[in-house]
Nucleic acid binder design. Structure first.
Length: 490
RNA sequence: GUGGCCAUGGUGUAGAGGUAACACAGCAGAUUGUGGCUCUGCUAUCACGGGUUCGAUUCCCGUUGGCCACCCCA
């Protein structure tokens, strides 16, 4: 530690010297020398490095504070794509008659434990849980369905015309290790249809999510399965575990563990050895009650009618405990085996609302992982370019000003025009005309309105045609009609 | 939670045991009220902490973070 500092001093000395030699301009060179000189003097005075205070540390190059692990800033360059996705979601949900709703990001921990299932990983290790000031346990929501169900009960929504159809969009939190398409804070768009059990509802939800992706230009494969009623599943699980036990020696370590914790997940194992075992395993379809089976058949029929292509996958089970009967997931057609290829999924959860203390209420829903949708949209360069800037920032007319008086006059002028529905570009914070014209140019403006000292006195304004360079002097009172003419001409 | 790879300016990249180069972007300027070309200048204690060394940003270890895979999930 003490070694470092003394060595650092000569650095400051060398730099300016080395730099000055090749420089030509006297002006700038002396400026540099001055700046460096000050530094030179200062450094020896504080040879023993003072403890950097925290704010200093943080201020350093604007670094010091960074987003928490697994969290991302959405910058203006990228946001147009997000807004596009958001509006696609909004449009599709509206088209199918879903009403927008929001629930708090923070909820009682118990709500999630009860609904998702105690043994699930989401609850076990992925929830952001902490004590509130009054000592109660609260959690950042890892998903939205539980909250929607809670709200359905709280607001007596069973008194509304059934089914109740809602959609949502928002941040979810899961304390997982970040990975491709996986973040600790992520966004989901989803729809829920509560209060009625009918296969047509399941089919509609699948159509909504399928078409949402379709509208964005993503073609997907819907994987679908039915896991029956809670009772069906219980019976099947017993059977499955029995079977797996008999093949225990062929299973991988993970599956041996899964066998105890969540036997259905064994069906999803990718290990070759396990796959062989799974192929021979009893299938859940054979264990469905007559009612569940008929229900599932109807869902498939309706999907055919809706012309939504689907793939039956008997091994599909979802990770959350509340699902019953229909379950589905969306995979990109390119079918790459990479993890996290599911863009979203959903299913029926007829038992959840009762589980949370409401009256028995059937319901179903889906959610889409927006980060995964976005990454799908930007996967190759062509796609990225196409979506780079859906709302192009071209400002047809730019306003440039020169001098304090002109600035004030222009401030008002722009505001008046805005109220009349004429939008123009400007950067009144810039003082040089040159810079403002540069800006106009980079915004691809066709015309620039220039207002300087002289124009303020004359009550006029210069309108410059950016491509020809021809300028016209116009009376300020006629600006509006002149601008309208320009806008109409385009 | 486990494992692999990685960490240089705002962004994308070079680079060597003796303190950093290039491109783009940004800002300022090239005779004071005019853009698109050109030119000039400015913008990095090479993630953080420790070790090895005369000396490390370059080697080693740790931390943090990123990417990827597993677990699990969106």
């Amino acid at each position: 530690m003490p070694k470092k500092k003394p060595v650092a001093k000569p650095k400051a000395k060398k730099k300016p010297v080395a730099r000055l030699t090749p420089k030509k301009k006297g002006k700038t060179a002396s400026k540099v020398a001055k700046l460096k000189f000050v530094k030179k003097v200062q450094r020896p005075e504080q040879p023993v490095a003072k403890e950097r205070t925290e704010p200093e540390e943080a201020r350093k190059n604007g670094k010091g504070f960074e987003t928490l692990r697994g969290m991302k800033d959405l910058l203006p360059e990228k946001s147009p794509l997000w807004l596009l996705v958001y509006h696609t979601a909004e449009n599709i949900a509206k088209a199918y008659g879903f009403g927008y709703m929001e629930t708090p990001i923070l909820e009682s921990t118990q709500l999630f434990v009860r609904s998702l299932g105690k043994a699930t990983d989401v609850i076990d290790k992925e929830m952001y849980t902490f004590e509130d000031k009054d000592g109660s346990k609260v959690s950042l929501r890892p998903e939205a369905t539980a909250s929607i169900a809670r709200a359905y009960i709280n607001h007596g929504m069973h008194n509304r015309p059934q089914p109740v159809k809602v959609w949502y969009w928002g941040q979810m939190f899961r304390h997982d290790r970040p990975q491709a398409g996986r973040y600790r804070q992520f966004h989901q768009f989803g729809c829920e249809t509560l209060g009625q059990r009918d296969p047509v509802i399941d089919a509609e939800l699948i159509a909504v999510s399928y078409n949402f992706l379709f509208d964005l230009g993503i073609s997907t494969e819907v994987h679908i399965n039915s896991i029956g009623s809670l009772e069906d599943r219980k019976n099947y699980t017993v059977e499955l575990v029995g079977y797996l036990r008999s093949k225990r020696t062929y299973l991988c370590a993970d599956c041996k563990r899964r066998m105890v914790k969540n036997p259905l997940r064994v069906l999803d194992c990718k290990e070759e050895e396990c796959r062989n075992v799974i192929e021979e395993a009893p299938q859940i379809v054979d264990w469905l009650s007559a009612e569940s089976r008929a229900f599932f058949m109807k869902v498939l029929e309706y999907l055919d009618e809706l012309q939504v292509p689907y793939v039956l996958r008997s091994t599909l089970v979802r990770g959350l405990d509340y699902y019953t009967d229909t379950v589905f997931e969306f995979y990109t057609e390119k079918g790459e085996e990479g993890a996290q290829s599911a863009l979203g999924g959903g299913g029926r959860y007829d038992g959840l609302i009762e589980q949370l203390g409401g009256r028995p209420t059937p319901a179903a829903g889906f959610s889409m992982g927006i980060e995964r949708v976005i990454s799908e949209l930007t996967r190759d360069k062509e796609g990225r370019k196409e979506f780079e800037n859906p709302y192009d920032g071209t400002m047809q007319i730019f306003f440039a000003q020169l001098g304090e008086q002109a600035r004030r006059r222009m401030l008002r002028l722009i505001e008046e025009l805005r109220r009349k529905g004429i939008l123009v570009g400007s950067n009144l914070a810039k003082t040089s005309l040159k810079t403002q014209l540069e800006l106009a140019n980079s915004l691809k403006s066709t015309h620039t309105v220039i207002l300087g000292q002289k124009e303020v006195q004359d009550g006029t304004v210069i309108i410059r045609d950016m491509s020809s360079g021809i300028q016209e002097i116009v009376d300020q009172k006629k600006i509006e009609q002149e601008l309208r003419k320009i806008i109409a001409a385009k």
